[in-house]
Structure formats: C-alpha cells, structure tokens
C-alpha cells in the first residue's frame, strides 16, 4: 500500500492553488486534511500526478459570524467545529453530528471543506449542510460563486466543483429561537460510516414543526432529502412520515445490511430525530 508517484506543491495563495489546478486538468488533487485522500492514494484507488497542499492557506480556516450567517472556512478542522461555542449556539446540528464523525485523531486533522468536497454519500457533514440550508462558497479561475447545498451534491463523489475550483467556505444561516434540529445515525461501531443516518432541521410551529428538512445519508449517491416525510412531519403525522419514506429514499444493499434493513432503520431514525426536535421545545 504505497501511493503511485506524485508531485507535491504547497500553495502560498488561493490564486496560486487555482492556477496549479489548471496546469494539469484531471491530474491534480487538493490536499486538505488528507483523511480520505491519503488512504485512496495508498490503495492506488486514485493516482493524481500532483497534490496541491492548501494547509498553509490560513485565510481558509476559522469560524466567524457574518450578520445572520455563520461562516466556516473550508480548512477549519473538524475538532474546532466540535468544540466551538459559536457552532453550539448558532448551528447546534453540527455540534450534535461532529462526535459521530470517525475518531478524534481523524477529526483533529480532517477539515469540513475536505469532507464536503469529497462528498462521501455515507458521511455526516454533507447531510448536515443539506439540512441546514447551507451555502458553499467556491473560488475558481473566473471568480467566486456560491452554491446551495441542495444543488452542490450531484452524484456519487460528484459535486458542483469544477476541475479548477477551490471550496473556500461554508455559510450557514444562524439558528433563530424557533430553530429545531435533530441528528442520529446507526453505525455498528463508534466512528464507523453509518449504515444509515439522518440530519434534520425545522422551525417550531406552536405544538408542531414547520419548514422541516430531513437529510438522510448512507441511503443513496448523495445526501437525500425525504420530501414526502418532511410534509407529513410538518403536518404532525409521524406515522405517515415514516410510511412515506419508502417513496422518499431507495437505499441499496451493501456489505453490512440489505436495502430492507436500511429502509426500516431510516424509519426508526425518523422517530428518534423527530422526538429530539419536538422535545427541544420545552
């Protein structure tokens, strides 16, 4: 398990990183925390000719408030998000989800941008950003642009990022007083990729919920919104929400469990996560 030979360049600026990406289209990978990339290199599942290391770009790191948005730099380590008071207050869903991501040693190194850009369909963060209506800030050769999380994840390990794009930051609307969120997943061992997981947000609506966003992970090629269940849950009908999941998600068999088990577990998760969101009210 040794990687194929590759070149290495440490970017001194964002522009330089974008420039290096353009030099060898398809043969360049950005090195962020390296927690997925290095493993794929070592297993020769990926053989880029050049790695562009963006760990020196400090402007891509950090958590700050920008009016009614929380801005998280792409290179912010997962451990910083896990421990941030701002995150706990303004994006409590992330605080709930972070401890489920792999192991502390991995969170020390892994970045939020790396996880989002890699877009593993079983990963927690893409689903969280989907549930949170986050926006992804991207810098490319033709300037900057912003993509909604709902539009960012295109397919299996496929995103809206172009070959010369750098994911620079995540923007999340800050939680208001009526914000509700829930998170749970089923993983055989602490830190494993989940068999199925659910990140959810909503707004309190009297005794019920409204603006429900349910983002499942581990059930498709991307985070999957359960739109029928969202409507049913907003209508206060949990049983109907669970029943309608069969129309919302279409999980596939994998080496751990088959589709029927995943479908069942998705329903169990919905009940648990809905409970978290409604119990948060009191």
């Amino acid at each position: 398990m040794k990687p194929a030979p590759f070149g290495y360049a440490k970017a001194r600026s964002l522009d330089e990183a974008i420039g290096l990406l353009g030099q060898q289209p398809d043969g360049v990978k950005l090195l962020a925390g390296g927690q997925s990339l290095i493993a794929t290199l070592n297993m020769r599942l990926s053989e880029p000719r050049l790695l562009v290391d963006i760990n020196g770009l400090h402007e891509l790191s950090g958590i700050r408030l920008d009016n009614d948005h929380l801005v998280i730099g792409a290179m912010t380590r997962q451990v910083e998000i896990e421990r941030s008071a701002d995150i706990a207050r303004h994006a409590p869903l992330l605080a709930k989800a972070l401890p489920h991501i792999a192991h502390p040693a991995i969170r020390n190194r892994g970045t939020i941008g790396g996880s989002i850009a890699f877009a593993d369909p079983a990963a927690e963060l893409p689903a969280c950003l989907t549930a949170l209506s986050a926006e992804i800030e991207i810098a490319g050769p033709s300037g900057k642009r912003t993509v909604r999380a709902d539009d960012f994840f295109k397919g299996l390990f496929e995103t809206a990022l172009g070959p010369q794009d750098v994911l620079t930051a995540i923007r999340i609307p800050t939680a208001l007083a009526d914000h509700r969120c829930g998170f749970d997943e089923f993983a055989r061992r602490l830190g494993d990729y989940a068999i199925v997981g659910l990140a959810a947000t909503a707004r309190a609506n009297g005794a019920g919920l409204k603006d429900v966003r349910l983002a499942y992970f581990g059930v498709g090629a991307t985070p999957v919104r359960a739109s029928r269940a969202e409507v049913a849950l907003a209508a206060g009908d949990l049983d109907k929400a669970v029943a309608s999941l069969s129309g919302d998600i279409d999980p596939q068999d994998d080496v751990q469990e088959n589709a029927a088990v995943k479908q069942h577990l998705a329903g169990v998760l919905l009940r648990r996560v809905a409970k978290q969101m409604t119990e948060a009210r009191s």
């Binding site: 751990q256 088959n258 069942h264």
Partner: peptide, 14 residues
Amino acid sequence: FTPGKILRALGRVS
C-alpha cells in the same frame, strides 16, 4: 448476529 438478522428474527424486516 447483525442488526439485520435480529430484525428478521423479530419479524420487523422480512
């Protein structure tokens, strides 16, 4: 004994 096998034994999943 995976979760799936236990759920099938319980009749929760066919």
